[in-house]
């Protein structure tokens, strides 16, 4: 007789993606990404402290097209997670749970992170 695994409760795959759910997942993912990226920042600070060819090497790596791509993602993750945190603060205060409002806050989170990321990169990196 063959046995089947016990049925388990349906998980992520059965749900239609909603903006609130996606934003919540992305909040956790960006948190994890920032966790890893903090090592990049610590590495850069250590290189600055050591100086010499170590600092030049790390700077060249971060300034390469791939390094810039990672830093662009890092910037966006920072802002997405920051505004996601503010979204949580709004919820902690007991507001923003109503239908319509919670979706608006989630979309606002994406709009704010996109706008600030582009602002920082366009104004200060590409123009400045």
């Amino acid at each position: 007789m063959t046995t089947r695994p016990r049925p388990t409760s349906p998980h992520l795959s059965v749900y239609r993606f909603t903006i609130t759910m996606t934003t919540s997942i992305v909040h956790r993912v960006t948190g994890g990404a920032l966790y890893v990226s903090s090592a990049l920042l610590a590495l850069w600070l250590a290189a600055a402290a050591i100086g010499g060819s170590v600092f030049d090497g790390v700077n060249a790596l971060y300034g390469s097209w791939f390094g810039m791509l990672v830093l662009f993602g890092y910037t966006w993750a920072l802002f997405q997670h920051l505004f996601g945190g503010i979204r949580h603060f709004i919820w902690d205060s007991g507001n923003g749970f109503e239908p319509g409002k919670r979706e608006a806050i989630a979309w606002g989170n994406w709009a704010a992170s996109a706008a600030l990321t582009l602002l920082v990169w366009i104004v200060f990196v590409w123009i400045g």
């Binding site: 920042l41 610590a42 600070l45 402290a49």
Partner: peptide, 17 residues
């Protein structure tokens, strides 16, 4: 370990500067 290591490296590097 990771969180403490990153924190120690970052803080010591800045203090060195």
């Amino acid at each position: 370990f990771f969180a403490i290591a990153v924190g120690v490296v970052g803080v010591l590097s800045v203090l060195k500067l």
